[in-house]
Amino acid sequence: MISKKHIPLAATLAVFALLYAAASVSFEGFFSVRVFTNLLNDNAFLGLAAIGMTFVILSGGIDLSVGAMIGFTSIFIATMIQRYHVNPIVAIVAALAIGSLLGASMGCLIAWFKLPPFLATLAGMFFARGMGLIISMESIPIKSGFFKAIETFGYNFYPVTTIVFLAVVLIALYVAHFTKFGRGVYAVGGSEDSAMLMGLPVSRIKIMVYTLSGFCSALAGIVYTIYTTSGNATAGTTLEMDAIAAVVIGGTLLTGGVGYVAGTVVGILILGTIQTMITFEGTLSSWWTRIAIGGLLLLFIFLQRFIQTRAQGATRK
């Protein structure tokens, strides 16, 4: 018998298994290493953003700025490399620093001034998107040796973007389950008052969560840039919604406190599978992805609602 808190995760896995099985049966060649590898490669940047988002949602917040952050990072790196001939590594480090800083600033607004996360990150989103567009409206292709090398490495061995994603997943698993900070995130999302009374540094945890999300979305922006070998300020438009959807479909409660990084990975795989199925089908168009995501969101939100009401009913006794 699985415990109640594992139901959403089990449901996620079941949905993924069903979808993948259905796709493998319907489409020839779907059940192959190549398709699966591409599944990860095509969604690595979304996955990275969703990992950061997982921590934010676990802490009981939300981060609307991740999509805009990807756009900003992408155009920032491209401009640095192409226009100012900055060393790609320096550009990447700078981008990560900026992402973390923006995340930290939003975290401060949320922790210190008690701004609703929704509003603070909304402002962050406008800011990041605006800054990105100010840098350049046009997309800038990157012709750097470094990026070429990364690409060739990907062809010969394994896509770098996927490696980065998997590495971050491992780190995130460690942070979530084996560090005080990680457990603190769960505690703050579970009950902020109790966490405060138990002596956890609630404000610091919140600020760190948004910093982490800022870092992850900057990293997602870098991966996106590598993936497309170009900078584009409008990259990642409405991607925050997909990231939120992946987290929720991955079994994390939107109210915070319950969920798994591993669930988010499965959530990403589900979104990717739907997209790939639609590509395979050929006659179906991309908008079906959005509709399907919406439907899954609805399903999982109802599931969460149902579990919550039952849990509350149980404790009230």
Binding site: K5, Y174, H177, F178, T179, K180, R183, G184, Y186, A187, G190, S191, D193, S194, A195, L197, M198, G199, L200, G257, V258, A311, T315
Partner: peptide, 27 residues
């Protein structure tokens, strides 16, 4: 009760004071 309902009993007892070993919580 001022506890975190979705964490385990053990975690609630040690929350914020977890014993560490090799840079990770010694579960």
């Amino acid at each position: 009760v001022n506890l975190i309902p979705d964490l385990s009993i053990a975690e609630n007892i040690y929350l914020g004071r977890e014993p560490m070993a090799f840079g990770r919580i010694d579960w």
